[in-house]
Design a protein around this nucleic acid. Structure first.
Lengths: 136, 136
DNA sequence: ATACAAATGAAACAGTGTTGCAAAGATAAT
DNA sequence: ATTATCTTTGCAACACTGTTTCATTTGTAT
């Protein structure tokens, strides 16, 4: 999937800022922070445009936001090799040592039973600890 | 449990700022944001002191931080009516309409199996939706 | 009462996310 | 091709969150 194909498939207009953003995310396997993305977008980067496109791409289902911690927010493409099911959701791992955010494909979000009157929309699971590399 | 008893039990020095903070949390059942707490602490409030005491009280196990969303962070006492087990952890519900953060005692965090090499420390589950009151 | 360590408050700063507005770019119709 | 329209962009300005530094104050044990 190229950035252009992704945009066309979701009927979102192709703009340089969006193309650059998606391409940066395509080039990296792991979820990236605003800073990570900014560093790789160079002159095409404007913070307001970035946040507006985060909104646009997220509500189109192209990317999702991962809040690992209130000071660590990452963005990742919704392309999962292992499933085409866009509604399936997964836990994320946050390494407290290197601050990497990693998608835990193995850990799916179960169907929680909320008390009467509550409506479920979404669920985020953040598992904190130390990652493979940091445990060596 | 009074604020003083809580501090003594954890061998944390009694100071006006800490007493006020714990008392505000004792008076409210639901997790509170910095703003919520500030509004109820009046002249005793200084932001730096607040954040330092969040650290102190959290690492002593008196309070815990709940990151409902990157722009919604709440703090709550670790007093659970239903259990003395401090290591047990629960999911939290975040109402997208009124932004209330509610402890879901019913939903415990299961023992997730991480891939080899990963070390588990902690886990946060945030369930998003709309609450009782907002669904009326 | 004193002495020492811990806690506080103020100023300054960095990062994140938003709003308003004018300019630029894309789209469609004539 | 030209105009009209709508979307997107980029900039300035702002609000909020969280941290660092440092001088001063306070708590507590003796």
């Amino acid at each position: 999937m190229t950035a252009l194909e992704i945009l066309k498939q979701h009927e979102i207009k192709k703009t340089p800022a969006r193309m650059a953003m998606i391409n940066v995310l395509l080039d990296n396997k792991y979820p990236m922070s605003e800073m990570d993305i900014k560093e790789r977008m160079a002159y095409l980067y404007d913070r307001v445009t970035f946040y507006r496109n985060v909104q646009t791409l997220a509500s189109a289902g192209i990317i999702h936001k991962i809040v690992a911690d209130n000071t660590t927010v990452c963005y990742a493409l919704n392309i999962c090799d292992h499933a085409h099911n866009h509604t399936a959701e997964y836990a994320h791992f946050f390494c407290e040592a290197c601050h990497a955010v990693i998608c835990m494909n193995q850990i799916k979000i179960p169907p929680y039973k909320l008390p009467n009157g509550y409506k479920f929309v979404d669920c985020d699971i953040i598992i904190k600890g130390t990652c493979e590399k940091c445990n060596l």
